[in-house]
Design a protein around this nucleic acid. Structure first.
Lengths: 189, 189, 189, 189
DNA sequence: AATGAATGAGTATTCATTCAT
DNA sequence: AATGAATGAATACTCATTCAT
């Protein structure tokens, strides 16, 4: 009755997705239990099952949004001439997706690679990466060229969440800029 | 009675490590249960506990060998002049480790990144990567240069086990050669 | 369908506590497994975990009720003058707690003394005993007097469940009466 | 070869008993594993099995010595007249057993009461207590008198290892003296 | 007199999922 | 739109015990 107490109506489904994405990125898919998601939201596990048939379905929903963003780049890129300028623009747009909320998606994908393999969305995600890398080179490109394109995408991700082997005594902004520079260079070739 | 049936005596500990490494690489650390390891070896779970105090200790033992190999490169590199030639040699030696049995270690590390974070060996492994990447550049290198060195190492790994976003219609040997070429190029800079 | 077959709804939590108390008293805390409790109740182990987070929490819940009863005596005794009459009344009230369902609690505490030490409620329980014994004497009492008070409480417990070294050829009622008599005498001094 | 390194010959069996008694008293029978005993001795578990057929047999051996001491009191007491003087002497001799190494036996018996029940020596131990308490009263004693005798023995034990509900701000010697005083008094009646 | 290697049965605990309400 | 109660299968780990050497 008290409007104070009311949760914003109808967006529980969305809130589940947000919390799940955070936790999957933080701790990995396997290690994040539905109880944890439910607890952080202040609902019961059963509530999650009202909105999603399985744990995997939460991931699927998450990827639906993410794929939409990637597919927009792909569709656009397919209509462009295969110029250096186009390549640069692909890199920039990809970097923008990373800049938006999607960092967690990349983190999730990178750190839960193994779970991805068993998830129905796994192959679709990998397929998108391949397509993007192809668009950065063209079909008759040499293998090293294609590898460079792929590494360009990796560079951007790596620049966003300072993982494993990167220096840590550096600001986020610097790291991002460096990543962009290297990525553009790799995709130029 | 038949000597065929006899298990080679005394190497159970070693066989556990081998099987564990295979399974960790195949399915990830979390998803590989001790039951699975035991079953594949034809022993009971309790036998594993005779040889290793915990699941984590199996991993630690695995990394002990692996670290030794990496450290050999590091020690050697520290005594060399920081020339382009040295950098090329580092890349080659790193590639050789990959060529030997260690592919599975890299696969394990890359695909179970999240588990690594909770394992005692995690930080030590990351530290080695950082050190190696540093040796490929030198301390006064710019950030992009350092990122390139890091990507050189990534390239080699990626070339070994055709993951996610790489073309699959290509022989292992070709992919390896391409990886080496790109890595050498990235480390040259 | 037959209402006979229906388990009384909603009191599973309480039934778990009852069965657990029985078994803890019968066989000790360590030796009673959750499987046993679950089996005797006709539910699965996981059901216990729905109601209690850990095995220890079952014990804690058990002691909550028990402590409440003891604390009632303590609170009351603190408001009374330190007369022989008060002491007698304390003994009687303590004996009444034993008469009610709590015999099993005492049995549990006495026979699983070692487990108690590792349980979070252990110290709280011992503290209550000390407090009660103190109330039976007063702070300036001599050490022997305090020991007598403590033995008075022990006598009551011992009278209830004919342990170790007490004659067995005697009715429960007789043993209880004797225990009360000795306790009153010990607390008189 | 180096005599420094040699363990005292032939007394391993005895050393096992000592270590076991310590640990049983400290942590209880169930909670003390054979691994722990072996570790503390610097031998393997299998070595224990060379000297004792089962875990229980270690306990049995422990009680053999202990029973001998108690039985000596019993035999002596049976030949004495049932006077107050004899009763006092029984208490004193019992207290002496406690003073010697046997404190741990009592601790073990008191804190692992439940395990005792399942051990073959359990009933024999309880029987001895009963006999001793009887000798402190005589067969035609009233029930309260017998209970007092029993509590006399309890008092002595309680005085030795300050358990549960006894004040802790007191020296061991004081507590022992008080226990003896109370015990003598209880056995006098 | 003792070890090294192994087992079988057990323990507490966790998880994704179900379903009547 | 959600809860309360429960399940079945799994997991890492421990323990007393055995036996060939």
């Amino acid at each position: 009755m008290a409007p104070d107490d009311e949760r914003p109506r109808g967006d529980t489904r969305h809130r589940i997705q947000m919390v799940a994405m955070e936790l999957f990125a933080e701790q990995g898919y396997e290690k994040t239990s539905l109880r944890e998601i439910a607890d952080r939201l202040g609902v019961t596990k059963a509530a999650l099952y009202y909105h999603f048939k399985t744990k995997e379905e939460i991931v699927v929903a998450l990827f639906d949004d993410f794929f939409a963003a990637i597919d927009k780049i792909i569709t656009w890129a397919r209509e462009q001439p295969r110029t250096a300028e186009t390549r640069r623009e692909i890199i920039h747009r990809y970097d923008e997706i990373l800049a938006m909320g999607s960092v967690n998606m990349f983190k999730f994908m990178q750190e839960s690679q193994h779970s991805m393999r068993d998830l129905s969305v796994g192959p679709q995600a990998f397929e998108r990466f391949r397509t993007l890398a192809d668009l950065l080179t063209g079909p008759e490109a040499t293998l090293p060229q294609r590898l460079r394109s792929f590494l360009a995408l990796v560079a951007l991700q790596v620049g966003r969440f300072a993982p494993l082997g990167l220096p840590t005594d550096v600001t986020d902004e610097d790291r991002r800029a460096a990543a962009l520079e290297v990525a553009l260079d790799l995709a130029a070739g």
